[in-house]
Computed example of a mutant assay.
Amino acid sequence: MTQRVELATVMARLAVDEVVTEYAVAVDDGDWTAYRRLFTPDGRADYRSAGGIEGDAGRIAGWLSQTMALFPMRQHLIVNRRVRFGPLEQDTGDTARVRADYVNPMRFAGHDGGSTEPDFVCGGRYDFTLLRTDEGWRLRTVVVHEKWRRAPQRHTEPATP
């Protein structure tokens, strides 16, 4: 591998990593316009394993905006990113696949608009596929594979006689 190819690969890897980071930030910040811009025009996401829906990026952004309103505090931690590049139309490096683990702590909205309920935490793995476009790298698909979740336990006071 030549130095030029190695440098191009490193630059592509950094750009792909930035898209994954921007994905997490858009969801955590509730920036659904930024979320939509991360996808190709035919981009899709699948949240069914986490109890969600599957569809095009616009439909998913609408669903997320409603669902995430339950959680005013959220923080995606996307780690263990494995990036693989592939060819499209015989041009090496036009596609990328990222498999990454995630932990996602969130806080339920309280009745007074604050965050008073216990945390909801889930974890699993993302499968991202990306396409290099004239505008840079864009998400073609996002698939969530939720592996576990910890929901708050409702504590009830013992009944008084």
Rank of each mutant, 00 (worst) to 15 (best):
A50H: 07
D42N: 15
L131F: 12
A12S: 13
F39N: 07
Q66I: 12
W148S: 12
L130Q: 08
R37N: 15
Y23R: 07
D42K: 13
V143A: 09
R138D: 12
Y102A: 05
T67Y: 13
G124Y: 02
G58Y: 09
E89F: 02
T2Q: 06
V10H: 02
P161D: 12
Q66D: 14
I78Y: 00
P158E: 15
D46H: 07
V142M: 10
G52E: 06
R149G: 04
D127Y: 02
Y23F: 14
G51Q: 05
P161E: 10
G86K: 03
G110D: 03
L88S: 12
F39K: 14
G52P: 02
P152F: 15
L130T: 04
P152E: 13
A8R: 07
M11H: 04
M68I: 09
A69V: 13
I60E: 05
R97E: 12
H76Y: 06
T160I: 12
R82V: 12
G114D: 11
D46V: 06
G43A: 14
V98T: 03
L131Y: 09
G136S: 14
G43I: 06
L38P: 01
R74H: 08
R4T: 02
D91F: 04
G123A: 06
T92N: 09
G58T: 13
D91R: 10
A45Y: 06
T133Q: 11
D17R: 13
V98N: 03
T116A: 10
R82C: 02
W63I: 12
V10F: 01
D29F: 00
G43S: 11
G110E: 11
A69H: 14
Q3V: 03
R150A: 15
A109H: 05
L77Y: 14
M1K: 05
E89C: 07
P105E: 03
P105L: 00
W63G: 05
